[in-house]
Simulated assay, not measured.
Amino acid sequence: MKFKIDGSLIFFGLFALVGTVFAIAAFINWRSTQRIVQTGIETKGYVIDTRYSRDKKGRTTTAQAPVVQFVTSAGKPITYYSQTYTTPASFNVGDTVTLWYMPDNPQENITLEGVDGWLLPGVFGLFGVVFSLIGYPALISSVLKAFKG
């Protein structure tokens, strides 16, 4: 039996690989968020500001991310700059928000209620599904054709 590699095998193999990488990234991010919510400390914080996103040319866009201030269980004040930009803003200045943080690293391991915890895994998961649904069936078909020669 002869195995013949052609362009479609490589092309769809790359689609399948990209889909798999996106799906793994989505799972890792989702799992990290779940770990913070399940084992972290839940508290309330206050939105003290919002930041606007900037495009590649440095222009301000309408997407906003909240800046939240809270106090840890040890009494340390923390300011959290969310990286989740949304239009319209998911929170307004003055809002009280629920958040979870890990006591060993409250500056970095934080998850806000709402879109902050599911947006990135959702987007990565969607790309993973789309690329995989295009890549894997076509890759399997290409492999079967390559074996037939």
Score class of each variant (00 low, 15 high):
133 L>C: 05
84 T>G: 05
38 Q>V: 00
141 S>C: 12
127 F>S: 04
56 K>L: 15
131 F>Y: 07
31 R>G: 10
117 G>W: 02
15 F>Q: 03
67 V>E: 01
56 K>Q: 14
117 G>K: 01
46 Y>P: 11
131 F>H: 06
6 D>E: 15
67 V>R: 01
33 T>G: 15
143 V>N: 07
90 S>G: 05
21 V>D: 06
89 A>S: 09
133 L>R: 01
137 P>L: 09
73 S>L: 04
8 S>V: 03
30 W>G: 15
11 F>A: 14
60 T>H: 11
66 P>E: 08
49 D>V: 00
98 T>K: 13
34 Q>Y: 05
50 T>N: 13
20 T>K: 08
8 S>K: 15
51 R>E: 10
71 V>H: 11
87 T>Y: 13
68 V>T: 00
62 T>R: 15
144 L>I: 09
44 K>C: 01
20 T>Y: 12
139 L>C: 10
72 T>C: 08
59 R>N: 12
122 G>Y: 03
121 P>Y: 03
71 V>C: 13
13 G>M: 02
21 V>Q: 07
39 T>M: 10
146 A>M: 09
108 E>M: 14
59 R>Y: 09
17 L>W: 07
49 D>A: 11
86 T>E: 10
100 W>R: 03
145 K>R: 15
46 Y>I: 06
92 N>Q: 12
15 F>V: 00
116 D>M: 06
105 N>G: 03
114 G>Q: 06
2 K>T: 13
82 S>P: 07
19 G>W: 04
127 F>R: 02
82 S>G: 11
109 N>I: 00
105 N>R: 05
108 E>R: 14
22 F>P: 03
88 P>S: 03
108 E>T: 08
93 V>H: 05
29 N>Q: 11
106 P>S: 09
74 A>V: 06
114 G>P: 11
79 T>F: 12
97 V>N: 11
